[in-house]
């Protein structure tokens, strides 16, 4: 009968099922503070203790974390957009209009996806600037800087491949301007220096490899769609895992100590 004084939540928290899910209590003890981090698969990205300056916004600008947050936003909103979007020249533009005018919350999902993508690029640049200004690429973090540079390029490629998908004038001409550069690749582009040595032409060179043909068309749309939704995000995710893991392995956040 003494148990009847306990609240419903206490009963739940003391239940066998609850305790099988959460191995530690929530009372604010040093032990629980450590367990909160080390026994949580998402939070254990962090060390259980960090240098005091690691929580200072003035030092980190939180730029790397914000970049990752923007990435998560684009993943979530992007998956929602994928439910309504068909990557073919017949349907793509109409599906964007459908998303904007008919799908509940379609407009805000599209807006959020686009602005988060732009914001992610800015955040990546800011993160690079902060890491440079604190000299955090110096030993032992040289290799993580390289992964960071690759992630910077990958971020811009993710945004660039997504730029084509609305299949409007803005999309195809921006991608035309961008991919035309590939035709000027030395040796491998049909308008580039020394291309006659290799014997490439407009149908078979660096640009046609990127856009799947001589012109930006249905094959390009499908190619960019797969690159945008599957290929590059997987590469980016793998590189992010390595990037985060290397922070820990290279001695945690950089600092003057």
């Amino acid at each position: 009968m003494a148990d009847s004084n306990k609240s419903f939540f206490t009963h739940v928290k003391e239940s066998y099922v609850w305790r099988s899910m959460f191995r530690h209590g929530y009372a604010d003890t040093p032990r629980n503070r450590i367990l909160q981090i080390s026994s949580n698969v998402f939070l254990h990205l962090h060390p259980t203790k960090v240098p005091r300056h690691a929580v200072r916004i003035r030092f980190t600008w939180c730029a790397g974390g914000v970049t990752f947050l923007f990435y998560l936003v684009t993943v979530v909103t992007g998956v929602i957009l994928m439910f309504y979007y068909r990557p073919t020249p017949e349907h793509a533009y109409a599906d964007i209009k459908y998303l904007q005018f008919d799908v509940p919350f379609g407009m805000i999902m599209r807006n959020m996806h686009r602005w988060a993508a732009h914001a992610m690029i800015i955040a990546v640049w800011v993160h690079m600037l902060r890491v440079f200004m604190t000299g955090s690429y110096k030993p032992p973090r040289e290799f993580n800087w390289i992964i960071g540079v690759v992630l910077l390029v990958v971020t811009m490629l993710m945004s660039f491949t997504g730029y084509l998908l609305p299949w409007d004038q803005l999309a195809i001409w921006a991608v035309t301007v961008g991919t035309n550069m590939a035709s000027a690749t030395p040796l491998l582009g049909h308008e580039g220096p020394f291309s006659d040595l290799i014997g490439v032409d407009a149908r078979y060179d660096m640009r046609s490899f990127l856009v799947a043909g001589k012109l930006i068309g249905g094959a390009t749309l499908l190619r960019f769609y797969v690159l945008h939704c599957i290929f590059i995000p997987i590469i980016a995710s793998i590189l992010m895992i390595v990037h985060f893991w290397r922070i820990r392995k290279d001695g945690g956040i950089s600092g003057p100590l």
Binding site: P89, Y93, I96, K97, Q100, M107, I108, R110, N111, M112, H113, R114, W115, H118, I121, M156, S159, F160, Y163, P166, W167, D168, Q169, L170, A171, I172, W173, A174, T176, V177, G178, L215, I216, G217
Partner: peptide, 28 residues
């Protein structure tokens, strides 16, 4: 931001009508 500002949508893609100027995405 997402409520206040809509993502741009222009006319449907037309390979025969080149806008002047044709600009790459802003970050390029």
């Amino acid at each position: 931001w997402a409520i206040g500002m809509d993502a741009p949508t222009e006319q449907p893609a037309d390979p025969n009508r080149t806008p002047n100027p044709s600009k790459a995405p802003w970050y390029f």
